[in-house]
Design a protein around this nucleic acid. Structure first.
Lengths: 178, 178
DNA sequence: TATAAATAAGCGAACATTCACTTATTTTTG
DNA sequence: CAAAAATAAGTGAATGTTCGCTTATTTATA
């Protein structure tokens, strides 16, 4: 409902009707509407970041590790487009901060280590953490947004593919490695 | 109101009260709530993309042209944070597609020319348009999002600066130029 | 030019509907 | 049969929207 109709079309009464349960039943499992939204957001976020770290270790060689993260991220986006879209909506709502801080908890430590390891091993140009992040993931996120919207800049049709991803990935590596 | 309280806290009656007019007056100028939101979104979007093209020409040398776009984009984000945040909220609502297609109309032609010119002049590695866009602007957008949220990955405080922007920009140029 | 007619702009109060949430009752389960 | 789970049927408050009416400005008429 959130994805298809946005926050405006999302209400407890309508949700209950669609689910085939009474409104009151919702309030057995969730304290209130905010609680429900938060819990959905956190649940998606947990899965999201858990998937991101699959077969990944902060000790991996930089290029290999980043590639794995791109693959995991892309796989999740393609497999669960609704969940991703829903997460995006909730993150852009008033609960955004809470959701993010809650779901990033485990993820951020792993990423911090990965970054510092790579710099120490001289596999990564020493730059600010934010700049690193923006170059390393910004392009991927942009491509996935194009895919979600079904079209790229200019309105022409676009579909995310392994080939597109690898083309972008090589350029990112070119930018980040000494 | 949209920025400070989100879609949930935004109603026609409250808007009218804050504006110091009657609710009925709003309906003289806007057909309904959706119409009002759309028109605000399109207005911001038009300004947004107009600013992006200030002092820019598709014939400029690639590096110079891209730098100008980065500067224009960053300047707008820092000067009108509320407008940008509002635009972001509306774009993530049910009206997102309409707003985007409406405000991108003029912008996309200029960007297409810029891209093709640069490839023809061999100032830009020949790649897919979407890959180009993702590398060229993805990092900037990511940095501006960090700035808006006031913190970067991991929760540490972050403030967008010219220095940060230039560090990222040089890496993007490194990735995109032959 | 003075006055009447027409139009534009705005308003408060009300409309039906929907909202998040609750209570009192019934059904299911162990 | 007792506890837990689910429900139907509400609650008042808030929602988007409209109605009948007033005030201010412009245009047309005598």
């Amino acid at each position: 409902m959130l994805v298809e109709e946005g926050f405006q079309g999302f209400s407890m009464n309508r949700l209950a009707k669609v689910c085939g349960v009474s409104v009151a039943t919702l309030y057995i499992y969730y304290a209130d509407k905010d609680d429900l939204i938060k819990k959905i957001g956190v649940e998606i976020g947990k899965n999201f970041f858990c998937t991101m770290l699959k077969d990944f270790s902060p000790d991996m060689p930089f290029k290999e590790g980043l590639k794995k993260q791109w693959e995991n991220r892309a796989k999740f986006a393609l497999k669960y487009p609704n969940e991703v879209a829903c997460y995006d909506i909730i993150r852009h709502s008033a609960h955004g901060d809470y959701i993010l801080s809650e779901s990033l908890k485990d993820f951020k430590t792993a990423m911090g280590s990965f970054f510092h390891n790579a710099v120490a091993k001289k596999e990564l140009t020493p730059i600010g953490l934010e700049v690193f992040w923006s170059i390393a993931y910004g392009p991927l996120y942009t491509l996935l947004r194009f895919h979600k919207e079904g079209k790229s800049i200019g309105g022409s049709a676009f579909k995310f593919s392994k080939k597109t991803m690898e083309e972008a990935f090589e350029l990112v590596i070119k930018a980040l490695t000494p």
